[in-house]
Design a protein around this nucleic acid. Structure first.
Lengths: 154, 154
DNA sequence: GGCACATGGATGATCCGTCACCCATGCCTA
DNA sequence: TAGGCATGGGTGACGGATCATCCATGTGCC
C-alpha cells in the first residue's frame, strides 16, 4: 500500500480542469442552441450528418453505430425516438434477416438543412473564432494522439 | 437569405471533430472507471471534492451549484440521490429559513479517499501521459480564453 | 404593516444513455 | 444436419440532466 499518488501539478490541474469545463459548457450551449433553434439534439444532428454522407441516405444500424462510436443499444433507442418524430425510418434488410437500415426522410433532410448552417455558425462564434490556427493544430494533433492510445488499449 | 455559410475548413473540422470525440470518449472512460472501481460517478466525485475543500465538509446548495456551474435543480436532484446512498446529508440552515447545507458523511469521505488516487491515475494514463507540457499550456490558455468569452456573453 | 419582487430550494415530467438481458438469424464445423 | 457460437438488433429498468413550475422565506419600498 505504498501511498505514492502522483497528484496533479498546478499546470496539469489548470489544463485538465479547463478542458473539462470547456467541454461541459461548450457542449451544453451548442446542444441547447440546436434544440431551441432547430428542434434537433446534438445526437440527432450527428446521425443525420452521417446519413446524408451516403448517396441514398441509408445506412445499417451497426455501421452507423461504429461511425459514431455509439453502443448498439443507444443507436436502437435513439433511432426509435427519431423515427417517432419522423426524421428517419427503419427498413428491413433483404440480404440479412437480422439487419436493418436507417433511412433519412424528407423531413429529416429538411431538419438538417435548416440546422447545419446555424450549428456551424455557433461553433464558430463560440469556439473557433477565439482560437488561433496554431492552437487548432495543437488541439487536433493532441486529440488524435490520445484517441489513438485509447484505441490501442481497448 | 444570402446563402453565405462559412463551412468548416478541413483543418477546422479535424480539430473540432477530434476535440468532440476526445471529450466524449475520455469522459466516458473516466466515468465508467470511477463507477466500477469506486462506486461513485464523475458528478458525485465533483461534489465530494468541493465538499472536502471546506474545513467542515459543509456547503450551501447554491454555493456548490455556482462552483460546479450546475443548475439548482440538478443539484437538488443529485444531492437527494447521493443522500440516499449515504454519501452526504442535507441540513437546514439556521440563519436563512430557505437555505440548506450539504454535508459530507464519513462514508462520503471514505468514498472519495478511495476514489481520488485511482481517478488521478486514470487521468494520467488516459490523457496527461500522452500530452507534452507545451501542449498542456496551449490547452489551458485556449480553454480559459474561450470560457471567458462565454462568460462575457452570458 | 403590507405589498411586490427576489432568492433558495423542491418536484414531476420528459428525454437520454447505459446496463443487462433477450431473441432471431446466420455461420461453421463435427 | 444438428449443435454451438457469433452477429445484429430490441427491450426494460435504472440513473442522470433539464425544463417548467411551485412553494416558502427573505427584502425593499411605499
Amino acid at each position: 500500500m505504498a501511498e505514492t499518488v502522483r497528484w496533479l501539478t498546478p499546470e496539469e490541474q489548470r489544463a485538465w480542469r479547463g478542458f473539462v469545463r470547456l467541454q461541459e459548457r461548450l457542449g451544453g450551449r451548442l446542444g441547447r442552441r440546436l434544440q431551441s433553434e432547430s428542434k434537433v439534439s446534438s445526437a440527432d444532428f450527428a446521425v443525420l450528418v452521417h446519413l446524408t454522407d451516403t448517396p441514398d441516405g441509408r445506412q445499417r444500424y451497426q455501421d452507423l453505430a461504429r461511425a459514431l462510436e455509439w453502443e448498439k443499444s443507444r443507436m436502437s433507442h435513439h433511432i426509435a425516438r427519431m423515427a417517432g418524430r419522423g426524421l428517419v425510418v427503419r427498413e428491413e434488410c433483404p440480404e440479412d434477416g437480422r439487419g436493418a437500415f436507417v433511412v433519412i426522410t424528407d423531413a429529416g433532410r429538411a431538419a438538417i438543412e435548416a440546422a447545419a448552417p446555424r450549428h456551424v455558425e455557433a461553433v464558430r462564434t463560440l469556439f473557433l473564432d477565439h482560437v488561433t490556427p496554431a492552437e487548432l493544430r495543437v488541439l487536433a494533433e493532441l486529440s488524435e494522439r490520445v484517441l489513438a492510445r485509447m484505441d490501442e488499449e481497448g
